[in-house]
């Protein structure tokens, strides 16, 4: 009887300690906590991996998406936030309410790439206006064949693939092409997993889709990228390192960001060291994971902005297409 009692009370004690102990054991250990966009994740992961090897400081990276990540960031739970779009007004408000100030740092460029099936030999160049005709909400159920977009193209069905509405890629594409964020036709095959989009376009002669450049780069042999004509009279431009750097790939080149908690940047040396490392040693890592690093001049401006620890966002809570990074940083006083 006594033996049984000890046995059960020890189990009960163990369970109780499970509930009680973690609260007192919140470690004072130095960890850089990062969360946010899946688009920025590969870059931050690469930097985190190298930074951890070089300095033995622990870094964790989560993938809650830009929106989910900002929720945590504005509660002060994370030190650094990965973002594939600028911070929105409601997120700025949330941060303000919680007393979280942030430093906005563009870290690289991504090129949204419009792709077609390699068997498609007519739509290799498209104007932004043609893309709008294809993707705007008014096209839903109406624009079903290629010749409806451009009379010179054949009367064959067009099938569309794109990221789901929660994605920052979707937000940027609709903003840049249709003119209003989140404004898109609904009758396309949507997936949060870009590999599904790749498979869709590869397997469908009449398909057109869009996603981040890295997914095109890995599947170049199976897909054709569409050269984009920004407006009539401008040349058709294919996405590449060169065309993104010189700013000619418009309007689908977008900067991607990290947001750093200003208090952490000032008072946590490990966070400061991490961001320093990110900005100074990031270039080869960014290229390794198939994104485009900022040109040297812009990079310098970002580093200067970081060293000055200037809080705030240059976007004022709105998304914006085609803004120059230096101009953006200059807006933050």
């Amino acid at each position: 009887m006594n033996y049984q009692f000890t046995k059960y009370s020890s189990i009960a004690g163990l369970v109780a300690s499970l509930f009680a102990l973690p609260t007192m054991a919140v470690a004072a250990e130095k960890i850089v906590k990062i969360d946010g966009s899946s688009t920025v994740y590969p870059i931050t992961e690469a930097v985190a991996e190298e930074f951890q090897k070089a300095t033995k400081t622990k870094v964790t990276v989560g993938v809650s998406g830009t929106g989910g990540g900002f929720k945590k960031f504005c509660r002060g739970e994370t030190d650094v936030q990965n973002a594939s779009r600028p911070i929105l007004q409601k997120e700025i408000d949330a941060c303000k309410e919680a007393g979280v100030q942030f430093i906005e740092l563009p870290v690289a460029y991504d090129a949204l790439t419009v792709v077609i099936n390699p068997q498609n030999d007519f739509a290799t160049k498209m104007t932004a206006a043609e893309l709008k005709k294809l993707w705007e909400p008014a096209a839903q159920g109406k624009v079903k064949t290629w010749n409806q977009v451009n009379a010179a193209w054949p009367n064959t069905p067009v099938k569309l693939y794109g990221p789901g509405a929660d994605s920052g890629t979707f937000d940027y594409f609709t903003e840049a092409i249709v003119g209003k964020a989140k404004s898109s036709r609904g009758d396309f095959t949507a997936s949060e997993d870009d590999n599904v989009l790749v498979k869709g376009v590869v397997g469908d002669k009449g398909a057109l889709g869009y996603f981040g450049y890295a997914y095109y780069e890995e599947n170049q042999d199976k897909l054709t990228a569409v050269a984009i004509i920004e407006k009539a009279g401008k040349p058709a431009v294919l996405p590449s390192k060169a065309t993104i750097e010189d700013g000619s790939y418009q309007p689908l080149a977008r900067p991607i960001f990290i947001y750093v908690n200003a208090t952490a940047a000032a008072f946590k040396p490990e966070v400061k060291a991490f961001v320093n490392y990110y900005l100074e040693n990031g270039k080869p890592l960014i290229e390794e994971v198939k994104y485009v690093a900022l040109p040297a001049k812009e990079q310098k401006a970002v580093i200067a902005h970081w060293k000055a620890l200037k809080p705030g966002s240059g976007f004022g809570g709105k998304s914006e297409v085609g803004v120059k990074i230096e101009e953006l940083l200059a807006r933050i006083k």
Partner: peptide, 12 residues
């Protein structure tokens, strides 16, 4: 509940 994706160290 917020599991991480990149964590290159072990818990104590």
């Amino acid at each position: 509940i917020g599991a991480l994706t990149f964590i290159a160290f072990l818990p104590p």
